[in-house]
């Protein structure tokens, strides 16, 4: 079981994408994930996961990856 912070953040980002990204266009899905993470995640959490998008590419789902890249651009 992954108990490290980055592992949790990746899992959480994927979960968000799987739950609010369904039934809407890819663009809307990414928007929703961006909004959710921006509203509810502390800045250090966003910074940590965004600094590891590339190294965690295998673990992040595509919607989460796109959303995190957008979030990184605004950090």
């Amino acid at each position: 079981m992954s108990t490290n912070e980055l592992g949790h953040l990746i899992k959480m980002a994927n979960q968000i994408a799987s739950n609010i990204g369904v039934g809407v266009s890819e663009e809307d899905a990414v928007d929703r994930v961006v909004t959710h993470i921006s509203m509810f995640w502390a800045r250090p959490m966003r910074e940590k996961v965004c600094a590891n998008i590339e190294t965690s590419a295998d673990e992040l789902n595509p919607t989460a990856t796109k959303a995190l890249k957008q979030i990184r651009a605004k950090l």
Binding site: T3, N4, E5, H8, F40, W41, A42, R43, P44, M45
Partner: peptide, 18 residues
């Protein structure tokens, strides 16, 4: 103006040492 840590996030960050 930024949201803070939730309990679970606090504990994760504590394990990380931050």
């Amino acid at each position: 103006s930024e949201p803070g840590y939730r309990i679970t996030n606090m504990l994760d960050a504590a394990v990380e040492g931050t």
